[in-house]
Amino acid sequence: MAFEPFIHFMRGLQGKISSNGMGGMQGQNSHHIAFLRQLQKELNLETQMKVPLHELNVVVFDIETTGFFPDKGDEIISIGAVKVTNGNINKEDIFYSLAHCEKDLSKELVHLTGITNDQLKTAPPLSEVLVNFFNFAKNNTLIAHHANHEKSFLQNACWKLYRSPFKHRIVDTSFLYRIAEPDLRLVSLEEICEHNGIPIKDRHHALGDAKLTAELWCKYIAKVQAIGCNTLTDVYERLARL
C-alpha cells in the first residue's frame, strides 16, 4: 500500500475511533502499528549499502529530549529533519514537530532549546509525531550526528508506543569523519561544523541541528569518496579496519 493513501486512510479511521475513550486510543495505536509494519516491508537495507554515497537519498534528522536516558523516563520533545537527494540538501523538503510532554522542562532546557512548557502541553502526541516523521522519511537511510542518542530514543519509543522494533538504518556522521580525518578529535556539532567552515545557526533546535548535520554529511561524503570509499559497504568495511 502506498504511504500517502495509507496515512489518509489511517487518519480517517482515527477520527471515527477517537470518541471511544481508551478503546479509541488502542484503535489509534493499532493503525500506527499497521503503518509501521507496512513501512518496514518497504525498507531495503541491503540495496542502500551498494548505492554510491552521492546518489544515496537520505533523511538527516535530530531530536531534542528531556534528558539522555529513555529507559529512565526521558522523552522526545521535538524532531527535525531535512532530505538530501543526490548529494544536495533540499532545504524546502523539511519536517519539524514538537511532541507532547506533561513534565515541566527545567529552566536550563527551556533556555537551551527555546521550547516552552506551554508549547509542549498543546503539541501532538509522540505516537502521531513519529508516524508523521516515518512517513516523511519513508524508506530512506537516516543520518544523525552521534546517532546512538537518536537510535536509543527511537528504539524505546517504537517499542513502548507500538510494540514494534525500530528497523531503519541510522548512519552516524562520525563514521565518515573517522575515515576521512582519523586524527580529528573534535566531538560537538559546533566544533566539527567550525572545522569545516559551516556557519552555526539555530543550534539546539531540532531542525537547525538537522540542517547543520546535513551540511556535514555532504562535506564528508565528498571527502571519503575522494579516498576511494564510495558506498556504505565501503564505509563499514573501512571502519572495521580502523
Rank of each mutant, 00 (worst) to 15 (best):
I7D: 04
D234R: 03
V84T: 08
F133Q: 07
Q26I: 14
F175N: 13
I33S: 14
I192D: 08
K16A: 15
R178M: 10
S18N: 12
K107P: 09
V58L: 09
I33R: 15
L39S: 07
E55V: 00
I89W: 00
L161Q: 12
L109C: 10
I89C: 01
I179R: 00
N90K: 07
K160V: 11
G87S: 07
Y177E: 06
K219W: 03
K50A: 12
A2F: 03
I17D: 09
P125H: 07
M25R: 15
F68L: 15
V84G: 00
L130D: 04
E181Y: 07
S127G: 08
E46M: 00
D93Q: 02
A99C: 04
C193I: 04
L109S: 13
E64K: 08
L13Q: 09
G67T: 13
T231I: 02
K83T: 13
H146F: 15
V58C: 12
A81I: 03
D172C: 09
L242H: 14
H168G: 09
I227W: 01
P70W: 12
I198K: 03
V82C: 08
D202I: 04
K91A: 07
L112Y: 02
D74S: 11
N86W: 03
L36S: 08
G21T: 10
K167I: 12
E190S: 11
I79S: 03
N90L: 12
D62A: 14
K91Y: 09
T47R: 01
L232A: 07
L98E: 06
F134S: 07
C229A: 03
G15Y: 09
K219G: 05
Q38T: 10
N44V: 00
T113K: 06
G208D: 06
L216P: 00
R185N: 14
G21E: 15
I77L: 11
E128Q: 06
V187W: 08
T141G: 08
S106F: 08
P165S: 12
P165G: 12
A2D: 14
Q28F: 14
K16Y: 11
L242K: 10
E190P: 00
N44E: 09
H195C: 09
F3N: 02
L184A: 08
S174T: 12
G80W: 06
V110Y: 02
H111A: 13
S152M: 15
N139T: 12
R169M: 14
L13E: 11
